[in-house]
Amino acid sequence: MTRKTRRLWLVIACVACLGTAAALILRAFSSDIVFFVTPSQVEASPPPTDRTVKLGGMVVAGSVKREKHGETPVATFAVTDGQAAVTVHYEGILPDLFREGQSVVAIGTVQPPHEFMASEVLAKHDETYMPKEVAEALKKSGKWDPRFGPPPSAASWNNMTVQDASKTLSAPAAPN
């Protein structure tokens, strides 16, 4: 074995060891690395009421109630991960992307059994990027309702150009 080959194997061995170590550490701390807990996790093991947690999930369609207490807007909405739902109370201005069906992360404390007092609400948008007109056309044709889930795969609407979409929009609504 030449010195170069030996050095190469040495480097590969070191990197492999380091990679394994990093993987084990990340695995061990996996529960601390997650950014938020889900409603079903909160239901299964409710954290202490004085501990600040981040609750992530989808805003349930039709659950959003907006009120005004004096000057401050107050919002109440349910957040779900499909298995459990938690009612979130939040005083303040919601982010622009907040809507029914949107994923959000609420930061605050859990008030058992199913209440959550949020001090901050962040919107978590998904990885789909879609022109406005296409989204309008999909909604209008009844292929997708953003309040109830993620949009259909891009392949199904990618050939729909903005012009097509505008045409669909100006045409009468398709019967469902």
Partner: peptide, 20 residues
């Protein structure tokens, strides 16, 4: 691997891009 505030990648090697 973990849930994050950052959304998953739109462009992946295996799947079709979820982008117009």
């Amino acid at each position: 691997w973990w849930n994050t505030l950052h959304q998953p990648d739109s462009i992946t090697i295996t799947g079709a891009p979820t982008m117009s």
